[in-house]
Design a binder for these strands. Sequence first.
DNA 1: GAGTTTGAAACT
DNA 2: CAGTTTCAAACTC
Length: 836
Amino acid sequence: MESPEGDRIKASSSSTSASSPAVQDSPFFNYLSNLSPIQSVKAARYAQRFFESRFPTPPPVFRSPHVDLQRETSFLKSNDVDAGGSDVYGYHSNQVNNKLIACLQKEVQPSSPSACVDEYLTDPVEVEDSKISADLRVQPTNNVGQLLRCGFTGPRENIQKVNDANNGNPEDCVLMLPEQSRVNMPSSLNLVETADYQAESSTLPVSGAENPEQHVTQIVKLQNAGIQHNEQDGSCQLLPESLQSVEAYQDCSDSSRPVSKGSFKEATLYQRGIRRHLQFEAPVVCKSITTHKSHSSHNVIQEVDNSKVPASHTGLESLIFSDVDPGEVSNGRESISYSPTIASWTSFSSSEFVGSNQHSRSLAISGPIPSDSGLHLKSIGRSGPMDSDLIPRLKLSGYMSSKDHGRRDCLAKDSNRSLFSPEAGETHAHVDNYQQDNQTIVETGSAASQCNESMKSLCDSLHMTPSKQGVSSECRILISRNTERVEELNQVSPKTKRQAINAGEGDGCKRCNCRRSKCLKLYCECFAAGVFCVDSCACKDCFNKPEYEDTVLDLRQQIESRDPLAFAPKIVKHATNSPANIVEDGNWTTPASARHKRGCNCKKSKCLKKYCECYQANVGCSDGCRCEDCSNSFGKKADSVYRRVQRWENPSADGTKSGTLKQFSPRWEDLPDISHFTPLSLPYPKVLASSASPISDYQEVPHAQLHQGSTLKSSSGHRHWHSSMSFMPHLCESSAGHGCSSDSAFHDLLKDDDMPETLKETSTPTKTIKVSSPNQKRVSPPQSRSQELRSSSSPGLRSGRKFILQAMPSFPPLTPYMKSKNDTGRSDLKGEASDH
DNA sequence: GAGTTTGAAACT
DNA sequence: CAGTTTCAAACTC
């Protein structure tokens, strides 16, 4: 890892390539590819998991440990290479311009694009070569400055070209992209890139249009053997990182973050941290991906073929599609139920997304990712069901960590991809958010136009609701990478740093000031957020650094072993205000358990100060909170449904929330959650909550609760968890103003419907979901919940669940995190940390 | 900038 | 599980 690039990259690439072919050729993959839809799904997922496992140790820090376990155990060797690949990150950070990214492909394929493509898909060795060439490609770049800026060598050239193209001749870029997209691009990636590029250039040639068939074919291949694809080239993997970096960069959007080539090592370390962090959040992407999956592959393909879809569309679709991964395709259920999504999605991409890209390219990219998104990601990731599918997506989004190593190679070769991928990833992430809305809409059956609104609302929500963890993590990535450099440039004093950080916190970036915890405890915001401390942090004796990654991971594991949700977002926008929030809560942000993991426990601040986590997160207090005399301006806990109900039933009792509220059965306490449980939302939270059997739970719940009569209906019970869940929040939010938005409205609705009884009925499941004790200080593991849910689930659902379970990855936190790595040398730190 | 307050995290 | 201590952020002056 340490060694910077060149040789290392080569070596890594070679190793990677070598391994990949074997894997693809392995009976296992063959088997997977040949599996029936359902089976294939499993297989695919497995394969992907395999993929994941290949990745460098998935840092528990940022992502759920469970998934990581596999990765760490088996396939991480290539990670070293990735370390070298850190430059990728660097380049990410360096290049703010997505445009450039798009153009990168061109460079990557100096000789023959088509050949490159083939290489990707077919010949690992070739790929390696291409990688090498890619590395070399840096040299040729004329614009040293740009290159320097771009931490990533391969992309740099591309970037330069892109820039040139953008500045001078946009068409060049466009032209290039199409070719690459056709040739090199793994379908989705290319499409995405192309889309981005097009958006950039504002010329909207459809990348896929020229040769739709190829795209389709590629897509199909990807879908069918998405895993293979990834493994072979690692290109997909590359994408993720690139995406990641891009996102991070975008999020931070600190254009002033020159990344030096020499910082590869650092970059690598940071990358890990980032990766972890991202991985942790990656689930969101996955979720979104899942949603995408819902689109029938056929539809997507058709769209691509038609190439009528705007570039952005194409990109999105392709992205989604390819990203979606085979599993989805194979999965008949999903494709069917989601097919509608495509339309909405398409509309979305064309309208909102495209618009964003074209009009303000940086918009999607530059905007710091709202913490919410981060949360979503986390939750999604944990939701697990889609893991296998998610993985590719994650990669796209850049959340896959281990891949990075392999990716370098890919970068060289796939610099295009990686470059593009960032955007794609970014787009993807946004899409996810949007998708949620869209999906919801689709399921709800609302028109595509609604999607736009919902998307807008989502965007707003994203920007408006920064959550520490979510945004911060990404920011941190950027920070971590560039902090040193920036500091050098700025000669910032710690305090200044901190101030800057604080300023940056606006962006979602966090910085800690730990003095005694060594940043190895949850006291440390950085550590808690799953990110490494950066220079800007004012901490002392900090061990939360890439250098101590092992230690950090170990400690994280320890902490997670105590509390699986320890690193889950503390607060997700929740229940406070609006059903939408509730939905959000339930859906994506975090597992229900995580959502209400603790709530706040304010006693003196009345939830009116930042001491209150809820207030700090700009969310209202929920039933999960144990606060006293809550006056949270974002939503009083007392105002939650049950309180209202109570008030309603017993006006005189209105006074103290705790007293009367508690009189209600626990169910009542859970009412907020129940509200989350609205058909759409409920399933998801459960899924999220239970890592073990997220889907199953999810599915089960949905049906039961669908009947509650919420306005939102999911087209299909099993789908909810993805689409409905993920999207619902936004939908609600978007519509919040309209129908479901306000608490009052929601509560009123409940009242009108005589919710109390309904709640009672549903409450049981809900209660099961909510494992936390009355105080909810600790949340019980999702598993228990899942079991409870299972017990209540119908046989049919169970069967579905079983299927799902196979497909779904285990939820990270639930299972004890396994350490793949040796702890040698860490014990000291651990000891210290623990001692502390 | 130092000191206080606050509540989460950690510990017992 | 409850109570206490530790910790760091938020806040105040």
